[in-house]
Simulated assay, not measured.
Amino acid sequence: MPNNEVDPTARVDYPARVSALATSSQDGPPPDAILISAASNIRYLSGFTGSNALLLVTRGGATLFTDPRYAIQAAQECPFPARIEKGPLIQAVSRALKTSKLRRLAFERNRMGFDAWETLKRAVPPSCNLLPVNSAVERLRMRKSPQEVEWIRESVETNSRALRRAMKRFRAGMRESELAAEIDYQSRRAGAEMPAFETIVAAGPRSALPHARPTHAKIETKAMLLIDMGAFQNGYASDMTRTMFVGKAPKRFKTMYRAVLEAQLAAIDTVRPGVSAAKVDLAARAVLESSGFGDAFVHSTGHGLGLEIHEPPRIGKKEKTVVEAGFVITIEPGVYFEDYGGIRIEDTVVVTDTGCEILTPTSKELVEL
């Protein structure tokens, strides 16, 4: 099978994932059931990819609630029983709960809206306690299986291939939005399902905006060009940033670029099982501070990714999470100056038993366009 046609349902043991969640310890004894409302968590636990669903997980398995638009899809994707409902799903779940003997029902406090919570609260029997849990599924998702790592690798390689093809069509004077559209087009052609986020193309002083949106401004010569892009493939995200210079790079740009690259490499060198996420962040921050750019580094060093572009853990100054083999994270230090521009270099890496592997194949050598 070609690399861009990996079966996204291959070798996924959804009942094992559901069992791991049902028996996991939150802030006390495991609940009798947990109601999953986040689409990414429902996909992780059941394989269902529809846009409207709830998943009720118990120690005996799971039940999917969705609407008639997804009846065929649910039967194809989800190994658990599906209830096809025509009205609001939270009300359907509530009706099912009224006859249950649940004593402890957990729900995703960081994912459920207030209206849905109120409906649920009114529906549960008086003997049932509602337990808010935070990131219960996300904690399981942090450690990727070998198959998940391979899907992310596919996405990363597609992302890099798209940048390489798009830059062959680059010319000075292109608009930021034009280059962003070319990147998205090449990404789709290379096998991506969709961008993982709105592609960032920012030139000149606008590159000092870490989350700049492409505009109709022209990419002129004698300016830096920052591109931050990602793709979803097989449902899994990739993320990469490269900063180039249009024309011959001046000394100031080269100095900044060298400092950011050294910071990124220092952080990558720190990644290994047993190290805290904060220590990885500190490794990058220490290099930039020693280079005189500490105050220009205004965000965290990275984040986890997988079924979502931003997942735990956050690679930041106060993040206590200990890195484990199987984590997939980004390493992306950057420095930004309002009247000049910004430089960020980002790779996706997977934590191994002894360190980490850089999945991103795109070169980090300074590029002059």
Rank of each mutant, 00 (worst) to 15 (best):
L55Y: 14
E198M: 05
E178F: 02
G50N: 15
I227A: 13
L35D: 13
K218M: 13
R83T: 12
L54Q: 13
G61F: 05
L120M: 10
A96S: 10
S46K: 01
T360L: 00
N134F: 13
K251M: 08
A190Y: 10
L305P: 02
F197G: 05
K317G: 07
R344E: 09
Q76S: 00
A192I: 00
A278C: 07
L179Q: 05
E108H: 05
V271I: 13
Q73C: 02
G247H: 01
A196H: 01
H211I: 00
T321F: 15
K317L: 11
A286L: 12
P132H: 04
R43W: 02
N41F: 08
R122K: 15
R11H: 15
G113P: 14
P31S: 05
P29F: 02
P15D: 14
E357R: 03
I309Y: 01
I42E: 03
Q73R: 01
R139N: 04
G191L: 01
R252F: 14
G60L: 13
E198Y: 08
L305E: 00
G191S: 03
S291H: 10
A181S: 08
G334P: 14
E319K: 12
S155A: 03
T49F: 01
A196L: 07
D353S: 13
W117T: 09
T354L: 10
A249S: 05
R109P: 14
G292R: 02
D184A: 04
Y336V: 15
F232Q: 02
A202L: 02
F170L: 03
L120Y: 07
E118K: 13
R104Q: 06
P29E: 12
T243V: 10
Q73K: 01
A223W: 06
A249R: 05
N234K: 13
L225H: 08
A208Q: 09
G28Q: 10
P250N: 14
S363C: 09
G274D: 15
R164Q: 00
D239Q: 00
R122S: 11
S94T: 10
I42R: 01
R171M: 07
E198F: 11
T352Y: 04
E182N: 04
V18K: 08
V260A: 05
D295I: 13
P313M: 12
Q186R: 01
Y44E: 11
D339W: 05
A296C: 12
R69P: 10
F170K: 09
G28I: 07
D353Y: 14
V367C: 07
R272N: 12
A202N: 03
S25M: 15
R344V: 06
A74T: 03
T58Q: 04
D115V: 12
R83K: 14
E77H: 02
M194Y: 03
T58A: 07
E108Q: 09
Y70C: 03
E332V: 09
T215L: 04
T301M: 12
I183P: 00
A223G: 06
S127V: 05
A10S: 10
A284G: 09
P81V: 10
E178G: 03
A263W: 05
R314Q: 06
A38L: 04
L45D: 11
T330G: 04
A166E: 00
M256N: 12
P205A: 03
T221D: 11
P195S: 04
V322F: 09
E138Q: 07
V18A: 11
I227K: 10
V57C: 06
A223P: 11
A62W: 02
E324R: 10
R11Q: 07
D13F: 06
E311V: 07
L131D: 09
G28C: 08
E319Q: 13
